Simulated assay, not measured.
Amino acid sequence: MKNLNKFRSYFFAATVAISSFAFTSCDDDNDPEPEVIVEARGLYDQKGVFVLNEGNYGYPTSSISFQSDSANHKVVNNIFSKANADRPLGDVLMDMDLVGDRAYLTVNNSNKIEIVNAYTFKTEAVIENLKQPRFFAALNEDKAYVTEWIKYGEPGQVSVIDLKTNKVIKSIPVGPVPEELYIANGKVYVAVSGSNVVAVINTATDTKEADIELTDRPSSLELDQNNRLWVLSGGRVVYNDDFSAVDYTKTTPGSLSSINTSTNAVISTLVFPSNQSSPSNLTINGAGNKLYFNYSGSTFAQDVNASTISTTSIINKSFYGMDVDPETGYIYGAEQSFTGNGTVFVYRPDGTQVTSFVAGIGPNGFRFR
């Protein structure tokens, strides 16, 4: 999820009707350079943000919305279905990754990855028969990795995908309920949220080489400007015997840990002040010097060099999904609805609201182009 598509793509084409070259004489050094006009490769060959809408569990109501960066900031919903003769995307969209001229859509409860043209969103291939896939990260245009839950109560795995053949070539057991993964320094770091470890996979051999012990339920991963990997752990929630209430005498608090990606050593672990709320939605700005997360109903900003957890909120609400535009620093927060369409709120880095717009059912994430 977090390797090749966190940052905006800079290779998009100008939106024009034709391709042409205007040639001029090169005898005079003052002559202008030839003008190059490139044909747009599709409706989504432009800057903007894609909104991932997971839809209702058990129903094929997943969708993708797109808000253009153009002057009117037009929002188009259901772009996958519109590009594919109204065919539904599937059940529980979890991830979308831009790799070259393709987008990889991980659809958890449909057990598939839908591969579409990144500029038109027309389907080009489907990787089927996956086992509850969650998050995807590409090493390069030839190989990628996807976390799979398999099924509740069994250890999960990371599957290696050959992007030339769109086939799973290997599966690596990592532990229960693997979530986000991040590729750094030739390693895949996997948040194994059903445990207290981040698993480390060597990308040269595709074998697990270590488990890094942290605190309970690691889930979100981000890399900072110093190549430290930050891990947000939600803490373990324990219920009483009849599951009627949380037993806070046994529930553990969340934490924010940093890892040296050269040595895999844990640099620091900052523990949240209470075990009565779980932190979520770790993300980072484009400069890699400021982290953002949700906790106790609010949104917080955290300097990567801080030695304690931030206690000053910048937005007095938390979100179902959240990310930061790497160019503008604007914060995008998704407020879910599973009875109708959800809403996306956009804020400046200081937490001042800029705008909002309607997306699809259950918006849970964002990808910037």
Rank of each mutant, 00 (worst) to 15 (best):
N3H: 14
K6P: 00
K6A: 07
K6V: 11
R8W: 10
S9A: 12
A13H: 15
I18L: 12
F23R: 13
D28K: 04
P32T: 01
E33S: 15
P34C: 07
E39F: 03
E39H: 08
R41D: 07
G42F: 04
Q46N: 15
Q46E: 14
G48M: 02
V51M: 03
N56M: 08
Y57W: 07
G58A: 01
G58P: 00
Y59E: 13
S62N: 06
S65P: 06
S68W: 01
D69N: 15
I79K: 05
A85G: 13
R87A: 15
L89H: 01
G90W: 00
V92Q: 04
L93E: 03
L93V: 06
D95V: 09
M96Q: 08
L98P: 01
V99W: 02
R102I: 00
A103L: 08
A103W: 02
Y104F: 15
Y104S: 07
T106L: 10
V107G: 02
N111K: 07
N111S: 14
K112E: 14
I113L: 06
N117P: 08
Y119P: 03
A125P: 06
I127N: 01
L130D: 06
R134G: 09
R134T: 07
A137R: 01
A137N: 02
L139R: 07
L139K: 11
N140F: 00
K143Y: 11
V146F: 04
T147K: 03
E148I: 08
E148G: 11
K151A: 14
G153Q: 08
G153P: 04
E154A: 13
G156P: 11
Q157P: 13
S159C: 13
V160S: 10
I161G: 04
T165M: 09
N166C: 00
N166W: 00
K167Y: 08
V168C: 10
K170E: 01
G175I: 12
L181N: 04
I183L: 10
N185W: 00
K187L: 05
K187I: 05
V188C: 07
Y189F: 15
Y189T: 10
Y189S: 10
V190F: 10
A191H: 03
V192M: 09
S193N: 15
S193M: 14
I201N: 03
I201S: 02
T203L: 04
K208G: 12
E209G: 00
A210C: 00
E213M: 11
L214C: 08
T215E: 12
D216S: 14
S219E: 12
L223Y: 03
N226Y: 06
R236W: 13
N240F: 04
D241F: 11
F243Q: 12
D247C: 04
K250D: 04
S258D: 05
I259D: 02
T261R: 06
S262L: 00
S268W: 06
F272A: 01
N281H: 11
N281M: 08
T283Q: 05
N294A: 07
T299N: 02
F300K: 04
A301C: 07
T311C: 10
N316E: 07
F319N: 02
M322N: 05
M322V: 10
M322S: 06
D325C: 12
E327T: 13
E327C: 08
Y330V: 01
Y330Q: 13
Y332M: 04
A334C: 12
G340W: 05
V346I: 14
R348Q: 15
V354M: 10
R367S: 12
